[in-house]
Nucleic acid binder design. Structure first.
Lengths: 149, 149
DNA sequence: TTCGATTGTAACCAAAGAGGATACATCAAA
DNA sequence: TTTGATGTATCCTCTTTGGTTACAATCGAA
C-alpha cells in the first residue's frame, strides 16, 4: 500500500505557486514541467485543491493559480485530504462480510475499530502539525544556498 | 488510498488461531468461513505470516496453523509489515522524475523526505504499541459477555 | 502402502485505481 | 475576435486486489 503520488505532487504544486509567484502567474503547463508529467494531471489536482478551498484557479489569458489561504494556514493534512478522496471511508479496510455465525468474525469490528481509528488519528495528527509555509521556507533556503555555489 | 484488507484479515486469522485452538487445529477452511472469503486467500496470507516467522503451518491430515511466537510478542506492526509487501518502498510515493531543471522540482526530495519519514514513523510506532495478545483478550471478553445474555 | 485431509501454488479472471494522453469545449482578458 | 488558459470527456495501459478452479505436494493414520 502506498499513498498516491498526487499528495507529493500537490505539495510541489503549492510550493511552486509561492516560490515563483513574483515572476509570473503559475499555470498547469509550468507545474507539469516541474513535476515531469502532463498538464491535465495537474489540472485535475487543481480541481481537488480548489474544491477544498486551498487555491483559486482562473481561466483565460493570464490565468493560473494562487493560494486561497495563507500558507501558514495550510497543513499537510489539509492537502492530503483534498487529494485523497477515499479518506472518507477510513484508512483501513475490512473484508465485506465477516461471518455472523463465527463469534470472532461477528465481533471483529467491536474489537478493532477503536484501535484502527487511533492509528489513523496519529497519522492525521502528525500531518496536521506540518505547515505548507515551513515547507516553502525550507525550499527557499535550499534554493538560495544552491545559487551561492 | 486504503490499507489492504489483508491486514485485518490477518488479525482475524491470528485471533481465530488462539481463540479456537483448544477446540481443534484451526485450518484455512475454517478461517475462510469466519472471514467470509476463499480458503486460497487465507493460505496466501498463511504464506506471508509464515515467511515473517509469525505462524507455523503444517500440511496433511490434522494439519493447520499455530502461532510461532507468543501473542504478546506480536505487534500489529509486525502483522502489517508481513502482509503489506510494498512497505519496503515507503509509505509515500513521488512522481518518478521531477525536473532537474526546475529548482523546486530538483529539491523536492531534500525538503520532503524527512517529513514523510516522520509521518511514516508515527504510524509504525503507534502500530508497534498494540499487541495481538490485547486484541485476543478483548475478543475473549466480548465473546464471554455475549454468551451471558 | 494406501487413503484422506490439508497446505502450496500455478493459472486464470474481473474490477478498480493510478497515471497518462488527446481532443475539444469553456471562459477571461487584451 | 483572438489568444491563452482551465475544465472535462474519452480512451488507454499497468498494477493491484480479491477471487476461483485445479492440482501437486505433503503428512498422518488406518
Amino acid at each position: 500500500m502506498q499513498i498516491s503520488s498526487r499528495f507529493t505532487i500537490a505539495i510541489q504544486l503549492l510550493t511552486c505557486i509561492e516560490v515563483y509567484k513574483s515572476d509570473s502567474q503559475v499555470n498547469s503547463e509550468f507545474i507539469s514541467y516541474s513535476v515531469g508529467t502532463n498538464p491535465v494531471i495537474i489540472r485535475k489536482i487543481f480541481g481537488q485543491l480548489k474544491a477544498a478551498g486551498i487555491i483559486n484557479v482562473q481561466r483565460g489569458g493570464n490565468g493560473g493559480v494562487s493560494l486561497a489561504v495563507p500558507a501558514d494556514k495550510i497543513t499537510l493534512y489539509d492537502i492530503y485530504r483534498a487529494v485523497d478522496s477515499v479518506e472518507a471511508e477510513g484508512l483501513f479496510r475490512f473484508h465485506e462480510r465477516p461471518s455472523a455465525k463465527c463469534a470472532v468474525g461477528r465481533n471483529m469490528h467491536s474489537v478493532m475499530d477503536g484501535r484502527l481509528k487511533m492509528i489513523q488519528g496519529t497519522l492525521e495528527k502528525e500531518m496536521s502539525s506540518m505547515l505548507l509555509s515551513d515547507v516553502i521556507i525550507d525550499m527557499r533556503y535550499i534554493i538560495e544556498n544552491e545559487q551561492e555555489k
